[in-house]
Structures are given as C-alpha cells and as structure tokens.
Simulated scan of single mutants.
Amino acid sequence: MRTHVDRWVLAARGAGASADDTDLAAAGEYLLTRWSEPQRQYHTVAHLTAVLDVIDEFAGLATDPDRVRLAAWLHDAVYDPRALGDANERDSAEFAEGLLATLGVPAATAAEVARLVGLTAGHATGEDDRDGELLCDADLAILASAPDDYAAYTAAIRREYAHVPDDAFRGGRAQVLKALLELPSIYRHPPLRAAWEDRARANLEAELKTLG
C-alpha cells in the first residue's frame, strides 16, 4: 500500500519534477506536517486523503491527473481559520508555485497547479476546465456524505472556528451554504453530479435549517 509520501512523489514525478527522490520525499513529509497543524480540525490529513482518493478514482475525467493531485496536496497548505476572505487560498496558491519551482517542476505546470489551488476559494470553474472541475468536485465530496459523516464534518468545521461567537458563525456559515446551493450544480462532472448532487443539496438544506 502506498504511503502518503509515495503518492506525493509519484504525482510530482508525473508533473515533471526534476528533484531527486530524497528532496521530493522531504517536501511530502513537510506538507504532511502542515496538514497536521493543531488549528486544523477538518482540513487535516484525513481530508487530504479523501480528496486524493476521489481524484484517483475518477482520474480519467481529468486532462492531467497529476496536476490535480498536486493541487489537492497544496490547496490547503496554508490554513488559518482566522484569515479573512480567500487569503488562505491565495497564500496556498503562492506557496504551491514556489514549492514546485524548487522541486524542478516546469514553470508552466507550477503556475497551472497554483491556478487550480486558487479555484478552491469559490469552487467556480470556467468552461472546459476538466482539471479544475475534478479538484473542486473532490474537495466538495464530503457534502454528499451519509448523515453521520456530514454531522462529523460540520462539527469539525465549528471546532476550527471556535474563536467565532455562535451568532456570527451561524450567519457566516449560512452564507457559505447559500452560495453553494445557488451554484447551477455543486458537482461539475456528470458522473459525480449524478451520484452526489441530490444528497449534497439535501445535506446543505438540512444544515441551513438548523442555523435559523
């Protein structure tokens, strides 16, 4: 069974990284320390693993699956629950481009991975962006989970924002849910939409009712 670092190294190699295996493995280990930071309750290694698993399962939907895998690794590389707006996504995109450059990933590829990372701020993709669509669909897969898993997800999100008073959290969370529900479709790729869309919308609507 491949370790997380093995998965990182294979994706980096597939995307053209020229660094040696030792440096690639060290970068993977470093990323895992970031995904294990104490302020994270949902945006953890478990979330990273879940996103990677979806990408692997549906890799055939992507134009370049390894770029999508690298974007998954890097999309929450910077995560501060106290950050404002899309600062985490912007900082993660900048971090991604810099890290990949140090590992010898071609500049155009590093820039594309950074672009993909940036999409996770609003999960809105343009026309014919198969890689962006798969990354966003994988990132939002939790929304279509079974009720118990969805409840565990929402509880973890609340713990990440423990510094926010209840009223403010409910208002902010409701805005997030409404924005997702207003998307033409939460999931972009047809097989994922068919499997997940109805369940995700039911979960979001049920949570929205609890927020008052």
Rank of each mutant, 00 (worst) to 15 (best):
A17D: 02
T22D: 15
E89Q: 06
L48Y: 01
L70M: 10
R201A: 05
Y30S: 15
G126W: 08
A59L: 08
E133Y: 00
L24R: 11
E97S: 09
A124P: 00
T125P: 00
K209P: 00
D56C: 12
E37I: 00
A121W: 04
R40D: 00
R158A: 09
A50M: 04
S145M: 05
V54W: 00
D20P: 09
E37N: 04
L192I: 09
Q41V: 00
A195G: 08
R170W: 01
E97W: 03
L100W: 10
Y187R: 11
R170G: 01
V51F: 01
L48M: 05
L103M: 11
A11S: 13
A26D: 15
V68T: 15
D64W: 07
A206I: 00
A194E: 13
A162H: 07
A152H: 05
V5C: 07
H4Y: 11
E127C: 07
S92R: 07
G85D: 05
R201T: 04
R115K: 11
R82C: 10
G172I: 09
S145H: 06
T125A: 13
I186C: 04
E112G: 07
D80E: 14
L24M: 12
V117T: 10
V117R: 08
Q39H: 10
V51P: 01
D166R: 13
R201S: 05
L10M: 14
I142V: 15
I186G: 02
D148A: 15
T125E: 11
R40Y: 00
I186P: 01
A110H: 12
E89Y: 03
L24S: 06
H47D: 05
A15P: 01
A179D: 14
L32H: 04
H4N: 09
P165I: 07
L100Q: 10
P191V: 12
A87Q: 14
A111P: 01
A17K: 03
N88R: 03
R2A: 14
V9R: 11
G126R: 02
H47P: 05
G85Y: 01
P106V: 06
R193F: 03
R7E: 10
A93N: 09
V176T: 13
G171V: 13
P147D: 09
E205K: 04
L32F: 12
E37W: 12
E160N: 03
L61E: 12
D66I: 10
A107Q: 12
V113S: 07
A12K: 06
A151V: 01
G14A: 06
M1F: 11
E197M: 09
A17Q: 03
